[in-house]
């Protein structure tokens, strides 16, 4: 059975595309046949982060409008065997994503034997974001530890409850996961940032992971390699943990406690 997972947030720039790329890669590394779709029509970011922008010929909207078939449009990932990218188009016409069109593409992916389809949602609560979440079985709600991001995540959770196909058909609700990104244990320790516990307490959604703020995320995007592939890197390890928890493994939270380096050095003589 194919599972459709939307990566969404309401607020822009919180790390949806970064997370979609690494999460999809992580699932593929575990051997699952995975597709990741960019719903951000007009902005197209995912292909850059996945490093496949030069190989884009056809896109999601071409497939929906029948100009190309899925086999032509899916781009095989450079880094993992089982991963395919369906890029967004440059069109300004956001209504090109029709509900029937999206449903048909998802059904075709199901018939092609995909285990997971990851939908990278655009920001906001408009058409594109709604299309990305409509057919979701599960949702990863990406939130930064700040009030405006939490508000928007709360809003998108409400929309998931009312506008998803599962909600409309009265099926079992979309399974929700909270992913906190750009987390700085140091700033939390200094009282400048909300802690992950505060965020979870406000949103009341099970936590699937906390991704630390890390410079290597930007480096990874610039080199077109999702950060999860970076060796010995906190953000990469945190994304590995997210994939493990998603697949039902127990993993303790890491990178959430700040150790004051001065004290450490004084005690152990650095």
């Amino acid at each position: 059975m194919t599972r459709v997972i939307v990566v969404t947030s309401g607020k822009g720039g919180v790390g949806k595309t970064t997370s979609s790329a690494s999460f999809a890669s992580g699932l593929a590394l575990r051997g699952f046949k995975t597709a990741v779709i960019d719903f951000d029509v007009g902005l197209r970011n995912l292909d850059l982060i996945m490093g496949c922008e030069r190989r884009v010929v056809y896109d999601f909207v071409n497939v929906i409008s029948g100009d190309a078939n899925l086999h032509q449009a899916l781009i095989k990932d450079r880094h993992c065997e089982n991963l395919f990218v369906l890029p967004a188009s440059q069109t300004r016409d956001k209504d090109a994503l029709t509900e029937e069109g999206v449903e048909k593409v998802l059904n075709d992916l199901k018939h092609m034997g995909f285990d997971y389809v990851i939908c990278d949602s655009p920001a906001g609560i408009e058409h594109g974001a709604i299309m990305a979440l409509t057919f979701a079985d599960e949702a990863i709600v990406v939130t930064n530890p700040e009030v405006s991001s939490i508000r928007d995540s709360d809003r998108i959770l409400g929309i998931l409850q009312s506008k998803s196909r599962r909600a409309r058909d009265g099926q079992e609700p979309v399974k929700e996961h909270l992913l906190i990104t750009r987390y700085s244990a140091k700033r939390v320790d200094e009282g400048e940032m909300l802690s992950y516990k505060d965020v979870q307490e406000l949103l009341r959604v099970p936590l699937i992971g906390v991704i630390p703020e890390s410079e290597s995320v930007l480096q990874a995007s610039n080199s077109g390699t999702p950060v999860i592939h970076t060796k010995d890197e906190d953000a990469a390890d945190a994304y590995q943990d997210v994939v493990a928890r998603f697949l039902g493994e127990e993993r303790e939270l890491r990178f959430v406690n700040f150790e004051k380096p001065g004290l450490f050095k004084r005690l152990f003589g650095g």
């Binding site: 709360d154 409400g158 406000l202 009341r204």
Partner: peptide
């Protein structure tokens, strides 16, 4: 939980909400 932007009206009755009511 009732999320930001959602509104519920219990016409002519009580309402019990399990999970809380978010800001907004």
């Amino acid at each position: 939980p009732l999320r930001s932007g959602q509104q519920i009206y219990a016409r002519g009755s009580d309402v019990v909400i399990l999970g809380g009511v978010s800001n907004g």
